[in-house]
């Protein structure tokens, strides 16, 4: 009897634990609800709804910082292009970021580069997800 209870408990409770809200789900939900700059609690700890690129862009608006973020965004975009998941607007954002540097608007350049890097990072995540899950909508 004890054996049976233990087996049933494992089979019933483990999937329930597995479907508890992940960090990514909590982040996406709070980001969608409250936008950037909001603090939420997950698993007893506090986190910000800022994307990592928004944090990266929050540096001094200098030419060097803007160029550095553009370089990072370009590297990420090259990576996502290699696996065939580049997004449509990313190159345009990078071009606009470079134009903003030319015109001396380094804050604008940082923000645009951050967007481009975000596109590329999420594109890579999308690729990783697709590799594992593309078959889910194939009719059987």
């Amino acid at each position: 009897m004890k054996k049976l209870i233990a087996i049933i408990a494992t089979v019933v409770l483990l999937p329930a634990a597995a479907i508890a809200e992940t960090f990514d789900e909590a982040f996406e939900m709070n980001r969608a609800m409250y936008g950037k700059g909001y603090t939420f609690t997950w698993s007893g700890q506090q986190y910000s709804t800022d994307h990592q690129e928004e944090v990266e862009a929050r540096v001094d608006a200098t030419k060097a910082n803007a160029e550095s973020l553009i370089a990072k965004a370009k590297a990420h975009n090259a990576e996502v292009a290699k696996v065939g998941f580049e997004w449509k607007l990313t190159k345009g954002l990078l071009k606009d970021a470079e134009a903003a540097i030319e015109s001396g608007d380094y804050r604008k350049a940082l923000n645009l580069a951050a967007q481009a890097k975000y596109h590329a990072r999420i594109g890579l995540q999308q690729h990783a997800y697709a590799e594992k899950n593309w078959h889910l909508s194939v009719p059987q």
């Binding site: 089979v11 999937p15 194939v138 059987q140």
Partner: peptide, 23 residues
């Protein structure tokens, strides 16, 4: 021991579901 059996059952059922034909 019993939890191990339960986990094995669960994992094997997950494996059956994740084996996708046609991929």
């Amino acid at each position: 021991k019993n939890i191990t059996i339960g986990l094995s059952l669960l994992l094997s059922s997950q494996l059956v579901f994740s084996a996708q034909p046609g991929t």
